[in-house]
Design a protein around this nucleic acid. Structure first.
Lengths: 185, 185
DNA sequence: AGCCACATCCCTCTTTCGGGTGGGTATACG
DNA sequence: CGTATACCCACCCGAAAGAGGGATGTGGCT
């Protein structure tokens, strides 16, 4: 698809994160196309690693997921653009061009997702751990046991989670967390 | 991608379900490639409609989701094969060939998903409705009000849901339902 | 006609949830 | 040094959830 364009050329392809970083170092391409979800090292970490190596690297993120968490993390890691995988080729090529020209490329739908994020606060590490137990259907008592803390503490974290996600109960918290990409199924 | 193959040719492309059915009728292609998730009429209904028209139609389903519900529904609707969208082109072409030859094409990972399904019972229409309220974080009382039934009845349905999904509580039910593609977010 | 799945409702009982309010430590930032 | 934040714990309380039991009516299939 890309090679068809007269002014574009694929210089390398990687099948996992480590390879992507290595190939970037070797070829130093004008634009790096990364998939967010990859085995072992995910696209976000790869993007961060590449940017550490080269501050001016132009990275375009590609993802099937549209949860705001991934989008935010990708942009924070230094990606210049973010395109959803359901986009047709017509939408990908201009995105590559824009990123190559040093511009940002954030489609409207992606921008909307990001905007909806402004209301939310970040969850702390412990809160995320609790959230991950929540989606397994674990009761507070079980979570307390699994994390080696008291049930009261679990309740404390849960209260914070409910407040930060703006939801009424644990069930809704799980639904929202999955939708936003806060946790992986 | 397909047109590159010497023995393949794209005879038509549709951007929604209704168009897909119309174009199938017009061109009667050897193989029909369908995306499960489409606006208005989804791929599964399209597949069923096409098979009603032509019992021998060869349909290959393409989907980004790997929940067992979609897979099962697609195959039941008469699709001969099911390929996940994260598959590379190397995997798509042989799938098309297999389906064109009248064979079934179900990749290992898809087959695994289907196999894991054997343990579960189908949810009834009412149970699915309750499940859809559940993921919104609604309490039993609210669900009862929304469905115009008593809270006891809601509890009855909920009990069935928990049993059929093999989960301990409503929170886990939501997580499992989302994972399996039983409900759309 | 008999059976079965489904939907609907009722009751009791125990556990769990989630809100409220209080306190303690450690660490990091200015 | 004060302040903020994350982390940890405690007690109380009312509401909700979920497990247990059972009951009724309807419609479809045989």
């Amino acid at each position: 698809m890309v090679n068809i364009e007269p002014d574009m050329e694929i210089v390398a392809e990687a099948s996992d994160g480590a390879e992507a970083i290595a190939l970037f170092t070797k070829f130093n391409p004008d634009v790096t196309l990364l998939d967010v979800r990859m085995p072992a090292i995910n696209g976000i970490e790869v993007a961060a690693a590449i940017r550490r190596q080269n501050e001016t690297a132009r990275i375009l993120m590609l993802s099937a997921l549209n949860g705001d968490e991934d989008i935010h993390k990708a942009l924070e890691a230094g990606a210049a653009g973010y395109v959803l995988k359901n986009a047709t080729e017509e939408k990908l090529i201009p995105a590559i061009r824009a990123v190559a020209a040093g511009q940002r490329w954030i489609p409207q739908d992606v921008a909307n997702r990001l905007w909806s994020r402004r209301l939310f606060q970040e969850l702390t590490a412990r809160e995320l751990q609790v959230l991950n137990k929540l989606i397994k259907g674990m009761a507070n008592k079980q979570i307390a046991h699994a994390m080696n803390i008291s049930e009261n503490t679990v309740k404390g974290f849960l209260k914070n989670i409910l407040a930060k996600l703006h939801v009424a109960d644990r069930t809704e918290a799980v639904a929202v967390a999955i939708q936003r990409g806060l946790i992986q199924l």
